[in-house]
Protein backbone atom coordinates (compact mmCIF):
# COMPACT_ATOMS: atom_id res chain seq x y z
CA UNK A 1 0.00 0.00 0.00
CA UNK A 2 1.47 3.32 -1.04
CA UNK A 3 1.39 6.11 1.49
CA UNK A 4 3.60 8.23 3.59
CA UNK A 5 4.37 9.77 6.92
CA UNK A 6 5.30 13.40 6.57
CA UNK A 7 6.58 15.42 9.53
CA UNK A 8 7.16 19.09 8.73
CA UNK A 9 8.94 21.64 10.95
CA UNK A 10 7.73 19.96 14.13
CA UNK A 11 8.65 21.79 17.33
CA UNK A 12 7.41 20.57 20.71
CA UNK A 13 8.02 22.48 23.93
CA UNK A 14 7.56 21.31 27.52
CA UNK A 15 7.67 24.09 30.13
CA UNK A 16 9.64 26.30 27.77
CA UNK A 17 12.22 23.61 26.89
CA UNK A 18 12.37 22.27 23.36
CA UNK A 19 11.73 18.51 23.26
CA UNK A 20 11.77 18.53 19.45
CA UNK A 21 13.26 21.33 17.41
CA UNK A 22 12.14 21.88 13.83
CA UNK A 23 11.99 18.17 12.97
CA UNK A 24 11.17 17.35 9.36
CA UNK A 25 11.26 14.03 7.52
CA UNK A 26 9.26 11.93 5.10
CA UNK A 27 8.89 8.16 5.05
CA UNK A 28 7.36 6.46 2.03
CA UNK A 29 5.55 3.14 2.35
CA UNK A 30 6.60 0.45 2.86
CA UNK A 31 8.92 1.44 5.68
CA UNK A 32 10.51 -0.34 8.62
CA UNK A 33 12.20 2.47 10.48
CA UNK A 34 14.04 2.67 13.79
CA UNK A 35 14.30 6.01 15.61
CA UNK A 36 17.49 6.16 17.66
CA UNK A 37 18.83 8.82 19.95
CA UNK A 38 20.13 9.43 23.46
CA UNK A 39 17.88 9.65 26.52
CA UNK A 40 15.76 12.80 26.38
CA UNK A 41 16.23 13.06 22.62
CA UNK A 42 12.47 13.35 22.07
CA UNK A 43 11.90 9.86 20.61
CA UNK A 44 8.75 9.11 22.63
CA UNK A 45 7.59 12.70 22.11
CA UNK A 46 7.88 12.14 18.37
CA UNK A 47 5.77 8.95 18.56
CA UNK A 48 3.14 10.63 20.73
CA UNK A 49 3.05 13.59 18.37
CA UNK A 50 2.43 11.25 15.44
CA UNK A 51 -0.47 9.79 17.43
CA UNK A 52 -1.82 13.30 18.03
CA UNK A 53 -1.42 12.92 21.80
CA UNK A 54 0.95 15.88 22.12
CA UNK A 55 0.12 19.27 20.68
CA UNK A 56 3.18 20.84 19.08
CA UNK A 57 4.25 24.45 19.37
CA UNK A 58 4.49 24.48 15.57
CA UNK A 59 4.63 22.16 12.60
CA UNK A 60 2.42 19.57 10.94
CA UNK A 61 2.27 15.79 10.73
CA UNK A 62 0.41 13.92 8.02
CA UNK A 63 -0.11 10.19 8.12
CA UNK A 64 -1.24 8.84 4.75
CA UNK A 65 -2.62 12.27 3.97
CA UNK A 66 -4.50 12.75 7.26
CA UNK A 67 -3.53 15.64 9.52
CA UNK A 68 -2.92 14.07 12.95
CA UNK A 69 -4.05 17.15 14.86
CA UNK A 70 -7.22 17.74 12.86
CA UNK A 71 -8.33 14.24 11.89
CA UNK A 72 -7.66 12.46 15.16
CA UNK A 73 -10.44 9.87 14.77
CA UNK A 74 -9.07 8.69 11.43
CA UNK A 75 -5.56 8.56 12.85
CA UNK A 76 -6.75 6.38 15.76
CA UNK A 77 -8.17 3.92 13.20
CA UNK A 78 -5.10 3.61 11.03
CA UNK A 79 -2.31 3.81 13.59
CA UNK A 80 -1.57 1.06 16.10
CA UNK A 81 0.48 1.92 19.17
CA UNK A 82 2.59 -0.30 21.40
CA UNK A 83 3.61 1.59 24.56
CA UNK A 84 6.66 0.96 26.71
CA UNK A 85 6.03 -2.07 28.93
CA UNK A 86 7.43 -0.03 31.81
CA UNK A 87 4.31 2.17 31.66
CA UNK A 88 1.90 -0.77 32.05
CA UNK A 89 0.23 -1.13 35.47
CA UNK A 90 0.73 -4.79 36.34
CA UNK A 91 -1.56 -4.51 39.38
CA UNK A 92 -4.61 -4.57 37.14
CA UNK A 93 -5.79 -8.16 36.69
CA UNK A 94 -6.09 -8.56 32.93
CA UNK A 95 -6.14 -11.68 30.80
CA UNK A 96 -4.43 -11.79 27.41
CA UNK A 97 -7.87 -11.95 25.77
CA UNK A 98 -9.06 -8.78 27.52
CA UNK A 99 -5.93 -6.88 26.51
CA UNK A 100 -5.99 -7.86 22.85
CA UNK A 101 -9.74 -7.19 22.73
CA UNK A 102 -9.03 -3.63 23.97
CA UNK A 103 -7.86 -2.77 20.46
CA UNK A 104 -11.07 -4.03 18.83
CA UNK A 105 -13.47 -2.78 21.48
CA UNK A 106 -12.17 0.77 21.19
CA UNK A 107 -14.33 1.04 18.06
CA UNK A 108 -17.51 0.18 20.00
CA UNK A 109 -19.51 2.03 22.66
CA UNK A 110 -19.82 1.22 26.39
CA UNK A 111 -20.38 -1.32 27.87
CA UNK A 112 -18.11 -2.77 25.12
CA UNK A 113 -19.17 -6.39 25.48
CA UNK A 114 -16.70 -9.01 24.31
CA UNK A 115 -18.75 -10.92 21.73
CA UNK A 116 -17.95 -14.14 19.83
CA UNK A 117 -16.73 -12.23 16.77
CA UNK A 118 -14.24 -10.22 18.82
CA UNK A 119 -13.08 -13.39 20.55
CA UNK A 120 -12.41 -15.00 17.18
CA UNK A 121 -10.45 -11.92 16.10
CA UNK A 122 -8.44 -12.09 19.32
CA UNK A 123 -7.57 -15.74 18.63
CA UNK A 124 -6.50 -14.84 15.10
CA UNK A 125 -4.25 -12.04 16.34
CA UNK A 126 -2.69 -14.29 18.97
CA UNK A 127 -1.94 -16.81 16.23
CA UNK A 128 -0.30 -14.06 14.23
CA UNK A 129 2.05 -13.19 17.10
CA UNK A 130 2.64 -16.89 17.78
CA UNK A 131 0.79 -17.02 21.10
CA UNK A 132 -1.91 -19.60 20.38
CA UNK A 133 -3.81 -20.85 23.47
CA UNK A 134 -2.68 -17.87 25.57
CA UNK A 135 -6.01 -16.03 25.63
CA UNK A 136 -7.04 -17.06 29.15
CA UNK A 137 -3.61 -16.50 30.70
CA UNK A 138 -2.95 -13.60 33.06
CA UNK A 139 -0.74 -10.88 31.58
CA UNK A 140 1.37 -10.71 34.74
CA UNK A 141 2.21 -14.41 34.41
CA UNK A 142 3.84 -13.95 30.99
CA UNK A 143 7.52 -13.44 30.17
CA UNK A 144 8.78 -10.08 28.88
CA UNK A 145 8.81 -11.24 25.26
CA UNK A 146 5.30 -12.70 25.53
CA UNK A 147 3.99 -9.47 27.04
CA UNK A 148 5.46 -7.53 24.15
CA UNK A 149 3.76 -9.90 21.68
CA UNK A 150 0.41 -9.44 23.44
CA UNK A 151 0.73 -5.65 23.16
CA UNK A 152 1.64 -6.00 19.48
CA UNK A 153 -1.45 -8.21 18.94
CA UNK A 154 -3.58 -5.55 20.65
CA UNK A 155 -2.24 -2.90 18.27
CA UNK A 156 -2.77 -5.15 15.23
CA UNK A 157 -6.37 -6.18 15.91
CA UNK A 158 -7.75 -3.02 14.32
CA UNK A 159 -5.78 -3.65 11.09
CA UNK A 160 -3.58 -0.55 11.29
CA UNK A 161 -1.58 0.75 8.35
CA UNK A 162 1.12 2.08 10.62
CA UNK A 163 2.48 0.48 13.77
CA UNK A 164 4.30 2.69 16.29
CA UNK A 165 6.34 0.92 18.96
CA UNK A 166 7.93 2.67 21.93
CA UNK A 167 11.05 0.78 23.00
CA UNK A 168 9.77 -2.74 22.23
CA UNK A 169 13.14 -4.26 23.18
CA UNK A 170 13.41 -2.73 26.64
CA UNK A 171 13.75 -5.11 29.59
CA UNK A 172 14.29 -8.15 27.32
CA UNK A 173 17.19 -10.58 26.97
CA UNK A 174 19.09 -10.27 23.70
CA UNK A 175 17.69 -13.44 22.10
CA UNK A 176 14.14 -12.35 22.97
CA UNK A 177 14.86 -8.93 21.46
CA UNK A 178 15.85 -10.71 18.27
CA UNK A 179 12.66 -12.80 18.38
CA UNK A 180 10.52 -9.66 18.73
CA UNK A 181 12.45 -7.96 15.89
CA UNK A 182 11.93 -11.09 13.75
CA UNK A 183 8.21 -11.04 14.48
CA UNK A 184 8.00 -7.35 13.51
CA UNK A 185 9.83 -8.07 10.29
CA UNK A 186 7.42 -10.93 9.46
CA UNK A 187 4.42 -8.69 10.19
CA UNK A 188 5.93 -5.98 8.02
CA UNK A 189 6.14 -8.39 5.12
CA UNK A 190 2.98 -10.42 5.71
CA UNK A 191 0.55 -7.64 6.65
CA UNK A 192 2.18 -4.81 4.69
CA UNK A 193 2.05 -2.71 7.82
CA UNK A 194 4.52 0.18 8.07
CA UNK A 195 6.63 0.12 11.22
CA UNK A 196 8.21 2.99 13.13
CA UNK A 197 9.89 2.00 16.36
CA UNK A 198 11.98 3.70 18.99
CA UNK A 199 14.98 1.81 20.31
CA UNK A 200 18.30 2.22 22.03
CA UNK A 201 19.72 -0.77 20.31
CA UNK A 202 19.82 -1.53 16.63
CA UNK A 203 21.45 -4.94 16.68
CA UNK A 204 18.24 -7.04 17.06
CA UNK A 205 16.91 -5.41 13.87
CA UNK A 206 20.11 -5.20 11.87
CA UNK A 207 19.40 -8.42 9.93
CA UNK A 208 16.23 -6.81 8.52
CA UNK A 209 18.12 -3.81 7.18
CA UNK A 210 15.88 -1.11 8.66
CA UNK A 211 15.94 2.56 7.89
CA UNK A 212 17.36 4.58 10.80
CA UNK A 213 16.47 8.07 11.99
CA UNK A 214 19.08 9.61 14.25
CA UNK A 215 17.32 12.03 16.57
CA UNK A 216 18.46 14.30 19.34
CA UNK A 217 15.80 16.99 19.44
CA UNK A 218 16.76 17.57 15.78
CA UNK A 219 17.14 15.05 13.00
CA UNK A 220 20.83 14.31 12.47
CA UNK A 221 20.53 11.66 9.79
CA UNK A 222 18.07 9.39 7.98
CA UNK A 223 19.12 6.39 5.96
CA UNK A 224 20.23 2.80 6.07
CA UNK A 225 22.15 1.79 9.19
CA UNK A 226 25.37 1.12 7.35
CA UNK A 227 25.32 4.60 5.83
CA UNK A 228 24.52 6.68 8.87
CA UNK A 229 25.97 4.87 11.87
CA UNK A 230 29.34 6.44 11.28
CA UNK A 231 31.42 8.02 13.98
CA UNK A 232 31.34 11.51 12.45
CA UNK A 233 27.51 11.46 12.35
CA UNK A 234 27.08 9.74 15.71
CA UNK A 235 29.30 12.32 17.40
CA UNK A 236 26.82 15.05 16.46
CA UNK A 237 23.75 13.24 17.81
CA UNK A 238 25.45 11.67 20.82
CA UNK A 239 27.74 14.19 22.50
CA UNK A 240 30.58 12.32 24.18
CA UNK A 241 30.61 9.28 21.88
CA UNK A 242 34.18 8.53 20.82
CA UNK A 243 33.76 5.21 19.04
CA UNK A 244 31.06 3.16 17.34
CA UNK A 245 29.37 1.26 20.18
CA UNK A 246 29.39 -2.52 20.00
CA UNK A 247 26.04 -3.77 18.68
CA UNK A 248 24.99 -0.18 18.14
CA UNK A 249 23.78 -0.06 21.74
CA UNK A 250 23.60 3.62 22.38
CA UNK A 251 22.13 5.20 25.49
CA UNK A 252 20.39 3.39 28.27
CA UNK A 253 18.07 0.45 27.81
CA UNK A 254 15.41 0.18 30.51
CA UNK A 255 16.80 -3.14 31.64
Amino acid sequence: MVGELVVKNLTVRFNGFKALDDVSFRLDSPFFTVVMGPNGAGKTTLLKSILGLIKPASGTIKVYGFDVFKETTKIRRIVGYVPQVININLHVPMTVKEIVAMGALSKTLPPRILDRRTEEKVEKMLELVELENYSEKEFTGLSGGERQRVLIARALIKNPRLLLLDEPFSMLDFDIKCEVAGLLSRLFTKLSVDILLVAHELSPCIAYDPQVILLNKKIYAIGKAADILRLDILKQAYPGVTEIPQGFIIGEDHA
Binding site: L51, R76, P83, N87, I88, H91, M94, M102, S106, L151
Partner: peptide, 18 residues
Protein backbone atom coordinates in the same frame (compact mmCIF):
# COMPACT_ATOMS: atom_id res chain seq x y z
CA UNK B 1 -15.90 -0.66 34.13
CA UNK B 2 -13.95 -1.83 31.09
CA UNK B 3 -12.83 1.73 30.34
CA UNK B 4 -11.78 2.35 33.94
CA UNK B 5 -9.83 -0.91 33.86
CA UNK B 6 -8.17 -0.17 30.51
CA UNK B 7 -7.14 3.31 31.66
CA UNK B 8 -5.74 1.90 34.91
CA UNK B 9 -3.84 -0.77 32.94
CA UNK B 10 -2.35 1.41 30.21
CA UNK B 11 -3.12 5.11 30.14
CA UNK B 12 -1.04 5.91 27.05
CA UNK B 13 -2.47 2.98 25.12
CA UNK B 14 -6.01 3.99 26.10
CA UNK B 15 -5.39 7.55 24.91
CA UNK B 16 -3.99 6.21 21.65
CA UNK B 17 -7.14 4.14 21.17
CA UNK B 18 -9.25 7.26 21.50
Amino acid sequence: YREFKYIAFDEDGSKAMG
